[in-house]
Design a protein around this nucleic acid. Sequence first.
DNA 1: CGAAATTTGTCCGTATGTATG
DNA 2: ACATACATACGGACAAATTTC
Lengths: 249, 249
Amino acid sequence: MSTHPDRVSPLYLQIAHKLEQRIRDDIYPVGTLLPTEAELVTAFQVSRHTIRQAIEQLKRNGTLSARKGIGTKVESRGTDWRTQFRGQSRHDLFDFSRDSELHFQTKSEVTARSEIAAEMGIQPGRKFTYAAGLRYFKGEDIPFCWNEVYLDESVAEVLQGVDVLRKALFHMVESYTGERIASIHQELTPVHIDEHIAQKLDLPAGTLALRMTRRYLSSRGRLLEYAIQTLPGDRFRYRTILSAGEPKT
Amino acid sequence: MSTHPDRVSPLYLQIAHKLEQRIRDDIYPVGTLLPTEAELVTAFQVSRHTIRQAIEQLKRNGTLSARKGIGTKVESRGTDWRTQFRGQSRHDLFDFSRDSELHFQTKSEVTARSEIAAEMGIQPGRKFTYAAGLRYFKGEDIPFCWNEVYLDESVAEVLQGVDVLRKALFHMVESYTGERIASIHQELTPVHIDEHIAQKLDLPAGTLALRMTRRYLSSRGRLLEYAIQTLPGDRFRYRTILSAGEPKT
DNA sequence: CGAAATTTGTCCGTATGTATG
DNA sequence: ACATACATACGGACAAATTTC
C-alpha cells in the first residue's frame, strides 16, 4: 500500500532504533527480558525474520543477549552515541554517521607542513582541503563533538558545495573513486579541550576529552582522508567488543 | 581435551569455516570477488539464507565485504581477535600480555558493592578476588600502567601464589575452566590520575590518562574477569585498525 | 522424574527492492 | 533497457535449551 519510496532506512533498523529508545526510556530496563520475538512480531506487525534482524544488530553491540529457552536480555543501554561510541568495524562508522550530522563552519585549502604531516604520517607539502565543524545528533540542538577533516586534493571534490554531511565521508570518497578504503587507522588519546574548541562546544576550557584521529588509506596505502574528533570525556566512552569466532551453541 | 566431540556446529558456521579455509588457501585470493551467492548455493547445496548467514559472519570480522550489484569481495584472511593480540606495535595496548609483566602489590577478597557492581554490569553481592599492581615493559624499570583486576571467585584460584604475571590472565582463566572467553567488552575514557595512582606511577596528580576497562565474559554471559588499566596519556595512544587490510608496517 | 509448554536458533522457500555495469 | 548481484522482507517448519507442571 503506502508505497513511500522515500529513502527510508530498512525496517529492521527502524525497529532496532525503536527498541534502543525503549531501553533508554526504561520501558525495557537493563537486566530484564525483552518481550519474546513472537510478541514483538505482533507488536510491530512485521515478520519474525525482521525482528530477529533488529535484535541481531543490538546483540552485536552488546545491548542485548539471548539464550535458548530463556529469552532476550537487556544488557546495557549503551547504544546511545551520546554516552558510548562503539567502534570495531567500518560498519560502526556508517551507523555513527547515519545518526549524526556534521555542520561545517570553515573550509580551506591547506598544505601539510612538517608537524601536521608527521601527525598524518605523510610527506610534507601535500595539498589538502581542510574542513571543520560541529557534529550534532539528529534532532538535537547541542553539538557533541568538534570534527576536523583533511581531504586529499585528488578527492576534494566530494566536499564541494556540501555544508551539512549526513553520510560517512569515507563512503563518499569510495563512491567517488570507485575504490574501497582498505584500512582505517584509528588513535585515541586523552586531551584537555583548548579554548577555541571549548568555546564551540560551549564547555569550559580544559575539560577532559578524547581525541580520536583516523587515517583512511587506499589499497595502495595512500592517505585519502584524515579526520580528528574531539569528544568531551564526561559524556563519552569509546567502546569495543572483541568476540571470539565460535559463538555459544 | 576433546570434551564434546559429537556436538555438530550449525551449517552456516561450517560453511563460514570452509570459506575461510579457501581464502587462506588462496582459492579465493584477497582482493578478488567471492563466487556469487547463487553459485555458493548450488556449490554447497544449501539455501541462500544459510549462505548469507555464513557470509554475514565473515563480513563482521572484516574478512569479506559486499556491495550491491558488484559482489562479495575478499578483504583479508580471517582473523579472530586472538590474532590481533599479536603483531602490533609496542605501544599498542594489545601487546600487554606478551611484552610486559604485571607485578602485584595487593590482593584481597572483596564483595562487589552497588557502585562497582553497576560499573561491572553485574548484580551486587558477588565475591571477587581483587588484585592490583604495576605493569612494566620487560627489561624496563619504570612502570607504565596501573593495573587492577577483579576475578570471579569461581576462577580466583589461578591467581593463588602468583606475584608476577607474564601471561594474559584471561588465557589462564580459559585453561583453568576449559571454557573459552566468548567476548571482551572494552571501554576507554579520559581521566585525571588520582593522587594514589599518580604516586605509584611517579607522576604528578592530575596527569591526563586513559582509563581502560575490560569485561571478560564467558559464553554464558557470566563476568569472569574485570580489569582496569590507567595509562598515562602523554606516553600512550590507543591504536586500532578498522576493517584491516594487510597491516604491512 | 518425565511430559509439556515456552523461547530462541537454524534452515528452507519465495518475492521484491536497489545499486551496478 | 536489461541482466546481475546483493539487500530486504515475507512465510513456514523443526531443533535445542530451559522452565513449569
